[in-house]
Design a protein around this nucleic acid. Structure first.
Length: 465
DNA sequence: TGGGGTTAT
DNA sequence: ATAACCC
């Protein structure tokens, strides 16, 4: 693979001074005390146009052509060939075809493959360090602090040779090899390069990485050099980075609603938010949001990298121009449910709650969803792992009750979206440790576990109990 | 705007 | 159950 990557001038190994020829003695009094939470090394890994990459792996004949992934009337993402020809993410298919008549479109409404590949990426990263947090299907945060600490100890024992940064350094800031924070981040950049190399060698995927001292900064810096490159942020450059955002809505964590409310207060730039009265901001947005986003505006983010683990919920949705009869709705719900049951079967855990979500037509941009949820009856849960045709009918009945609870089917209605969600996932059944049930349930008292590798409900027959 | 996800209230 | 956030 060619790395279209340049080395940041001024960050080259040449910055290593002639001093400390042997053992880097200066490490000893600079190491951050164990247990100190003061300085972390975080990497944000962001795959390049993920859906398009997955499609090009599945269909190698598409490589080199401008490719867009279509969901309904939108091109949700596209490869770089298409971007060079003017196609943007979330562009209308009409506009995209107009801009780029040669554009090849593939349907990406079925997320199955994307989801599978997405979890392979997360699992690969978990091999480096188990603390991996997913953000969507194509981004992951990894806390490298411990790994970096181990490599630092290694460096002190072995020869301290290759102290060179991998990839770009934001703002071309020179690395100070006497600064332990710089050294730790530099090692983080080396690990990030190894991660990207592993993703390419093992999965054929390219992506960007950003290394910094917290999630916010790692995420912001990962996008600086864009396809297939990585960037390191040194602490002295963090103010430059956040002020390079030209509007607060670019700040991860400040979404549509908050942006509107901030604008109403006359806040539009990052500096506006930094300098705005904390008291007034707390009064306007509530203390929690106010304090969090004002810290973000300074580039401060103490939120931990929270291991995502297996998903908390499974859902399938479909949007459409119009659904206005109960029969129509039931058919769509059956489709969604069939896919969901397959997924739940693969996962090995059992959902204890179902939710039905609808979107009603409205001429305004109002965009609001309504939902109803209920516990899944235990007799259905028991049958969930195995032959899912027994569960189809009773589950549809449950879902149609939820449907009629939300929609008065005796009155005209117009829906534009239906979604079914399984959540409240529990390991295998409701048996709790220490109870009679637990010891009488073979699947719990023997070795089977739903780890990160999917567990098939092969030999367990919950119905027998 | 799609087809997903998460956490907080 | 909804509302906010993320992709």
């Amino acid at each position: 693979m060619e790395r279209a990557e340049t080395w940041a001038a001024g960050s080259s190994p040449g910055a290593l001074g002639p001093e400390e020829p042997g053992g880097l003695p200066w490490f000893h009094d600079q190491v951050v005390p164990a247990g100190s939470s003061s300085s972390r090394v975080i990497v944000h890994v962001d795959l390049d146009c993920f859906y398009a990459q997955v499609e090009m792996i599945s269909h190698p004949e598409l490589k080199g052509k401008p490719l867009g992934v279509q969901q309904k009337f939108l091109v949700v993402t596209c490869n770089y060939e298409a971007r060079e020809l003017g196609v943007k993410k979330l562009m209308n298919v009409r506009d995209a075809k107009e801009k780029c008549p040669q554009l090849v479109l593939v349907n990406g409404e079925d997320l199955t493959r994307y989801r599978e590949v997405s979890y392979k990426v997360t699992e690969l990263l978990e091999e480096f360090s188990p603390v991996v947090e997913r953000l969507g299907f194509d981004e992951n945060f990894v806390d490298l602090t411990e790994m970096v600490e181990k490599r630092l100890e290694q460096l002190q024992r072995d020869e301290p040779s290759a102290l060179t940064v991998s990839g770009h350094v934001y703002g071309n800031q020179p690395i100070n090899l006497h600064d332990i924070l710089h050294i730790r981040l530099l090692i983080g950049s080396q690990i990030a390069a190894e991660m990207r190399e592993a993703m390419y060698n093992q999965l054929g995927l390219t992506g960007c990485a950003g290394v910094a001292s917290n999630k916010l900064l790692a995420k912001l810096v990962s996008g600086i050099f864009k396809p297939n490159q990585q960037t390191l942020l040194l602490p002295e450059s963090s103010q430059d980075l956040i002020h390079s955002l030209n509007h607060i809505k670019k700040m991860p964590g400040i979404g549509y609603k908050t942006t509107k409310r901030l604008e109403a207060l006359g806040i539009s730039s990052v500096r506006d938010l930094q300098t705005f009265s904390s008291k007034i901001l707390e009064r306007e947005l509530g203390i929690s949001v106010a304090q969090r986003i004002q810290k973000l505006s300074f580039g401060e983010d103490n939120s931990p990298v929270t291991p995502s683990g297996p998903p908390q919920s499974f859902s399938e949705e479909d949007s459409f121009k119009k659904c206005s009869s109960e029969v129509e709705a039931k058919n769509k719900i059956e489709e969604l449910l069939a896919s969901l049951l397959n997924r739940v079967c693969q996962d090995g855990r059992k959902p204890h709650t179902v939710r039905l979500i609808i979107r009603r037509y409205s001429s305004e941009k109002h965009y609001s969803r309504e939902s109803r949820q209920c516990p899944i009856p235990s007799h259905i849960i028991q049958k969930l792992g195995i032959g899912n045709y027994d569960v189809m009918t009773p589950m549809v009945d449950v879902l149609m009750k939820l449907f009629r609870n939300m929609v008065n089917v005796k009155m005209p209605f117009h829906l534009t979206l239906l979604s079914v969600c399984f959540c409240n996932l529990k390991a295998l059944n409701t048996a709790k440790k220490g109870t009679i049930d637990y010891y009488l349930t073979p699947s719990l008292s023997t070795t089977s576990r739903s780890g990160k590798h999917s567990f098939k409900m092969k030999d367990t027959h919950m119905e027998d109990f």
